[in-house]
């Protein structure tokens, strides 16, 4: 008998005789998700962007409101100048490549001690102030973890109210290798419970919130 067989038969012996019906189990699982509003916190504000911003800023994330995608390079240059950063590693995404980067020191390689990285967030989640990124051919995961300053572009239209809404948005779609909900800059409380930002990942998380 393989370990797999031994584990499964031990489970069946312990649980006793049943006739598992996958449809009934699925219905029971779905029923457990009914009425999510009863078991989750309300949004911090009625407006999604405001709720998102309140939660994100409470965690140390900074937010800059940008009218449209064309204004992203200028907003980025302001951030780089404010923090004395020499340049930025850019996510190799078509939507970013299409912007006018004249006057911005951009590069694609991500150094081990990269100063800053700019990428696109797929979604934002208002409930928790989280940003969702997906791995892919146009998104190296290390871009979100090696830089000290992580800058994400998020469109207002991509704001979702609650965590379950992200699960629903992905229902039936191809899952990326990595889906990551980023909620604030990297931090640790491992020494005496004292909170320190910038443990191994970025010490700064900056959002360019795009939209009128």
């Amino acid at each position: 008998m393989t370990a797999r067989d031994r584990i499964l038969s031990a489970i069946r012996n312990s649980l006793g005789p049943r006739r598992p019906d996958p449809d009934a189990i699925a219905a029971e699982a779905a029923a457990l998700l009914a009425d999510p509003q009863v078991t989750r916190p309300p949004l911090a504000a009625p407006d999604l962007a405001e709720a998102f911003a309140l939660k994100a800023m409470a965690l140390g994330t900074t937010i800059d409101h940008v009218p449209d995608m064309a204004a992203v390079p200028a907003a980025l240059r302001r951030y780089l100048a404010d923090h004395g950063l020499p340049g930025v590693a850019l996510q190799p995404a078509a939507e970013l490549a299409a912007l006018d980067w004249d006057g911005t020191a951009i590069h694609t390689d991500i150094a081990a001690d990269e100063a800053a990285g700019l990428g696109l967030a797929r979604w934002g989640i208002a409930e928790s102030g989280s940003l969702v990124i997906h791995s892919g051919s146009d998104n190296p995961i290390l871009l979100s973890f090696l830089p000290l300053h992580h800058i994400l572009v998020l469109r207002r239209n991509d704001l979702l109210p609650h965590l379950e809404d992200y699960a629903a948005a992905m229902q039936g779609r191809a899952q990326p290798r990595n889906a990551i909900l980023i909620t604030g800059p990297s931090g640790t409380t491992d020494i005496e419970g004292s909170y320190v930002r910038g443990a191994h990942g970025p010490g700064f998380l900056h959002v360019l919130l795009v939209g009128p």
Binding site: P92, D138, L142, N178, L181
Partner: peptide, 21 residues
Amino acid sequence: GEMTQYTTFHHGPRRPGDADG
């Protein structure tokens, strides 16, 4: 806290064309 900083789902190894993993 309300959320950890990184909530990460791993679905299998690097896909063809993936930038890393």
